[in-house]
Amino acid sequence: MSAVQEALPAVRGSRDAIVRRFALTDAIFHGMTRAAAILVLVLLGGVAISLFAGSWQALSTFGFSFLTSESWNPVTEKFGALAPIYGTIVTSAIAILIAVPLGIGIAIFLTELCPRPLRRPIGMAVELLAGIPSIIYGIWGLFVLAPFLQTTIQPFIISVFHGIPGLNSLFAGPPYGIGLLTSSLILAIMVLPFITSITKDVFDTVPPVLKESAYGIGCTTWEVTRRVVIPYTRIGIMGGVMLGLGRALGETMAVTFVIGNAHRISTSLFAPATTISATIANEFTEAVGDLYTSSLVALGLILFVITFLILAIARYMLMRIDARTGA
């Protein structure tokens, strides 16, 4: 009895010490995790600041004309971003036009038509393909797709549209194989897995009751998809498309192989062109002079701003559909 009473203060003392130590170590761990979370914000802020600082020289030299000038002349040091911006937007837009109907079609196939045992393997294959590095698509585009287009498809299209006004300038020029259209095709196949897997995921969020009631009044599969599933998931699909667009805009290696790196704006889809990322990848290490390097960083800044906006919109849309399914 007395022994316990004697021991108590000692126990209480060590207990206080332990609680204090726990509080301290917990505060340290809390601080570490918080610092790491803030570092993620600092990273993106750092990217924006460093790009802005690096491009300052070019932006202050050329001003607004950097965005509107087509010239890109390292000898006279006159730089304008219009041709790369044009190439980036045209290739991404065509890629999205090809990939979206295909992606939605595959998603419908996977959710409505595919025999059940095949669904998981095919769905998984699509997701695995989203992880294949872009340089693989680039090397395939350069050695397989471009020669194929050059020898078969392009001469055929050129001869067919030769006499039709409008279309003949869209498909004009010698068939190089590489160029805007080839890059668009490669980009389309690259973003296809992204669009497919997101569309499939949002299709799965449609409550079965909605679909069943439509089937119950005698709707066909297409009518259910068109009138129930797609309207219900419209925001999610748009989010997936924007996410794919963000990837297509910033995609570097696959495009660099097959775009041809020509700084001019051509109406023909068969002409070599360039994109922002391909220009940076091709020229950055060889750029001589501060103004040249700074202009390339300024291109990076433009790309950063465009993709940031697109991705922010995409995330906002996907967050909205998440909020709805969570509610």
Binding site: R34, A37, I38, V40, L41, L43, L44, G46, V47, S50, L51, A53, G54, L243, G246, R247, L249, G250, E251, T252, S277, I280, A281, F284, V297, G300, L303, F304, T307, F308, L311, A312, R315
Partner: peptide, 27 residues
């Protein structure tokens, strides 16, 4: 903070990797 970090992290997740290259070049 978590909401903001999640949003920014998702953007970093799909940001063009060549931009990260430029950033580290400058850094």
């Amino acid at each position: 903070l978590t909401t903001v970090v999640r949003f920014i992290n998702d953007i970093l997740l799909s940001a063009p990797s060549i931009i990260i290259g430029l950033f580290v070049y400058e850094l």
